[in-house]
Design a protein around this nucleic acid. Sequence first.
DNA 1: TCAATAAATGCACTTCCATTGCATAGATAT
DNA 2: ATATCTATGCAATGGAAGTGCATTTATTGA
Lengths: 138, 138
Amino acid sequence: MKTIEQFLESKNIRVTAMRLLIYKFLAEKQVAVTLSDIENAFEKADRTTLYRTIKTFEEKAIVHQIDDGTGINKYALCEKGCNCEIETDLHLHFHCNNCNETICLTEHKIPQIKVPDGFVSENVNLVVKGICDKCSGQ
Amino acid sequence: MKTIEQFLESKNIRVTAMRLLIYKFLAEKQVAVTLSDIENAFEKADRTTLYRTIKTFEEKAIVHQIDDGTGINKYALCEKGCNCEIETDLHLHFHCNNCNETICLTEHKIPQIKVPDGFVSENVNLVVKGICDKCSGQ
DNA sequence: TCAATAAATGCACTTCCATTGCATAGATAT
DNA sequence: ATATCTATGCAATGGAAGTGCATTTATTGA
């Protein structure tokens, strides 16, 4: 069992207090978070630091960015089964129109999409919108 | 063969010079356009007018908004085979990473997506990214 | 036809999020 | 210990979406 420190180092990310905190915050969350979410969780820290930390995590492929159609970027840790460094990793995301939360459905792979002749598919973004399990049970 | 005027009236959209121009602009384009694209095409007109015209077209279901992951809303005329008033109309969009253009693949319907128990799917947004036919032929 | 009414347009402004430049603090290596 | 590189914080910018209000333009009805 790797420590977080070891994990970050293995990804060539320098370990700092801030980065550990942000990593733990993302790990606790079961949903994709916005930069503002992180900002609210760490009011002492500067927005820029949080922004750049996320970008670093993204570059090193331990976080992926999600565009769920709300117009605001969200981020989530890449879990096992999520290979974001591979461009063709294609799990889908679910956005709840009720609670506004977005979750990764890592185990749900996107089916093969056919495109017309001459078009080359490199990547697919698929967001399903509706009501999540928590909200539909209400 | 309906005139544009007749078409707009049939959709309960009042005909104005501006609206005709914007409609024609959209009709000429084979790709989804941003508000800025329209703005550049009609430098005399105010941004707000263009914005509200597009919103009107959207409400009346002759234009649909596309979120292609660039972070900028794009718009395209609803063609035959596009039934945007029906929430479950699910054609997909293709975004070219080279020329940055986004096109509707109206004839390509989105396959049925399975979501976990407890989740209710209301809508699906699917964007394929890659290289378009024009760019791949270069 | 003219007045009353409603809709469309234009201008100014606000808000929100993403992003960058630069100075400083902190860590690493020689 | 000092030079060097990275991370952090502050300030500012830019782009896009959206809103309030005044004015112009079109529509309706007397």
